[in-house]
Write a protein that binds this DNA or RNA. Structure first.
Lengths: 231, 231
DNA sequence: GCTCCGTATTTTGGATCCAATATTGATTAT
DNA sequence: ATAATCAATATTGGATCCAAAATACGGAGC
């Protein structure tokens, strides 16, 4: 049956496998540093190695896995330095995206952001961490989209992808969830007033909090990479 | 024989095909908007479709080609807006990369940049546009590398890739070549003095000149995409 | 003439098989 | 015991073949 389920299966095996791989990495089933055994994974997903390899090429482009000729793929091990670098780049790109977005934002756009925020709060109340992470993403992307710069948004989205595992870590703790909600509300407030620079500042702080929290969470013990399943 | 030629053949077919595809796109042999016929291309490069498709996945990630399920790949058509967007993003990222680079730059690093510039000037004198483009790239990347931010550099490199065709256009004209050389010399001068903000300004102007020149070159007639072979 | 429909052809998607390379483990010499 | 070498094994890279989907074509109906 081709019913309208939450997640219907994609039209090609490579896209299906791509989604599964992403999930496996962000949930920590595939841990950073792990080599990727194509045969085993292909069998698990019930596809051949061809679409699997194409999906891996995509993930390589996004920086989620590394590749060495004749040695295959590994789940990318993100050091703290890597994490900081990704957040630095996000800072640069998102600041610009937000500036443009505020200039062009209509009431419709604002309403869309507010709807996304409502979903964030609903998920938080329900204690559904995974759904909250997704809604949070929709909230931010909705705003970025209003920049009218599709390539910029695409880049930002890729950067989010590459640190999904860390973000789940962040949302795993209640005070962080609460803080996210408050900061989103502040953002919406400033968006309504079209106070561009204030929005940029709030969102910069928003990111900084996440980095700090993750650093603290990670610093003790873990020297290099980490497993997202650690929590 | 595995002699030390200029370009030795990569260890895998996918990497070989990737290089060939890039060349084909940047030189305009494959024109923007063209659908990519896998069978024909694979035969031309004398490989099967499997490595070809993996190379195409990589290019998709870089934004050089687009992909639709069951309809295959197309060479990305870059509108003027797209071009401006890429240069805007480069502005954001490269400014940061340069700031960090100047702070960390040693005399060795400076010497490397000077060597690259010497190659640029040699190629320009020899009228070798292709080699000049490559040397120019080395010049800038050498500087960016000194930022110590590998992911940032990787992103910048991808952005350069996605507009290679346009850049060849720029280097096709003598006054532009001359201007590039002068601006590089100015950059080196300011680098020696570690005048960070001045370097950032010069390089911003450097990029702006390129955009302006390309816009003028493209504006008359061409409404949307263009073929890099037009010159 | 135009549209709609069904078939033929082309093109992409994927599975299997074989080749090439890397890794592992055992054997031997020092 | 250790290091080096070579064979056995595991794993990736690539070619061919078949299936599925999209496109092109031709004819029937209006």
């Amino acid at each position: 049956m081709t019913s309208v389920e939450g997640h219907r299966r994609p039209p090609t095996a490579q896209q299906f496998v791509l989604e599964e791989l992403r999930r496996a990495i962000t949930t920590g089933r595939l841990r950073p540093g792990d080599p990727i055994r194509q045969e085993a994974l292909a069998e698990e997903f019930d596809v051949s190695r061809v679409p699997l390899r194409e999906a891996l090429k995509t993930l390589e482009g996004e920086g989620l896995v590394t590749y060495k000729a004749h040695r295959g793929y590994c789940v990318q091990r993100l050091s703290l330095d890597d994490l900081r670098e990704v957040y630095l780049i996000r800072e640069l790109l998102e600041a610009e995206a937000v500036r443009r977005a505020v200039e062009r934002l209509t009431d419709d756009g604002l309403a869309a952001a507010e709807r996304a925020q409502a979903e964030v709060e609903r998920a938080a109340a329900a204690g559904d961490v995974l759904e909250m992470a997704e809604a949070n993403r929709r909230f931010h992307m909705t705003i970025f989209e209003w920049s009218g710069l599709p390539r910029l948004v695409r880049l930002i989205r890729t950067l989010w992808d590459s640190t999904d595992a860390y973000r789940s870590l962040y949302y795993g703790e209640e005070p962080n969830r609460q803080r996210v909600i408050e900061e989103h509300r502040a953002t919406l407030d400033l968006l309504r007033r079209r106070d561009t620079e204030a929005v940029v500042r709030v969102l910069a702080a928003h990111r900084a909090h996440a980095v700090t929290a993750i650093e603290e969470r990670l610093a003790p013990g873990t020297t290099g990479g980490f497993g997202a399943a650690d929590f």
